[in-house]
C-alpha cells in the first residue's frame, strides 16, 4: 500500500528528502523555512498505514519513532505529533490547519486546501 505525504496549502514546499521528513516527524524540525509552525499529524501508531509510512518513507520502525517522541516531549524539546483516528479525519485536519503535514494511503482524493509533496527516498 503506497503512502502519500500531504501538506496544508499554506506550506510552500513541494519536495522533501526522507531524511528531512524524518527530522519533521521526529519533532526535531519544528518550523517551516518561512517561520511558521509545523503541525504534524499521524494515524494510530499500531495501524497499517502508519507502519507502512514509517518503514517506506522514514526508514524507521514505529517503536523507534515512539521512543524519540517520548524523549522530545519529556525533556523539553518539543511536542509529539497529534494522533488522528481515521483517514477522513487526517484529510480534514491537514486541510483545516495552517502549517500541517500528514500522510494518507494512495490513491488520495483531491481535496481543497491539501497539496501532495514528493519524497525523495534513498532506498
Amino acid at each position: 500500500m503506497p503512502v502519500a505525504v500531504l501538506v496544508n496549502q499554506s506550506v510552500n514546499v513541494d519536495e522533501l528528502s526522507s531524511v528531512q521528513l524524518r527530522m519533521i516527524f521526529a519533532g526535531r524540525t519544528q518550523f517551516w523555512q518561512d517561520g511558521s509552525r509545523i503541525q504534524v499529524f499521524v494515524l494510530p501508531t499500531d495501524g497499517p498505514v502508519h507502519q507502512q509510512f514509517c518503514r517506506t518513507l522514514l526508514n524507521t520502525y514505529p517503536y523507534q519513532l515512539k521512543r524519540i517522541w517520548q524523549r522530545v516531549v519529556y525533556s523539553g524539546q518539543g511536542d509529539a505529533p497529534t494522533v488522528v483516528d481515521s483517514v477522513a479525519q487526517m484529510s480534514a485536519m491537514i486541510a483545516a490547519t495552517p502549517g500541517a503535514i500528514g500522510y494518507l494511503p494512495q490513491p488520495v482524493n483531491e481535496k481543497e486546501g491539501i497539496l501532495m509533496i514528493t519524497v525523495e527516498t534513498t532506498q
Partner: peptide, 9 residues
Amino acid sequence: RVTQLFDWQ
C-alpha cells in the same frame, strides 16, 4: 534555536 534548516538543527 540558533540554526533550523531542514536537515541541521
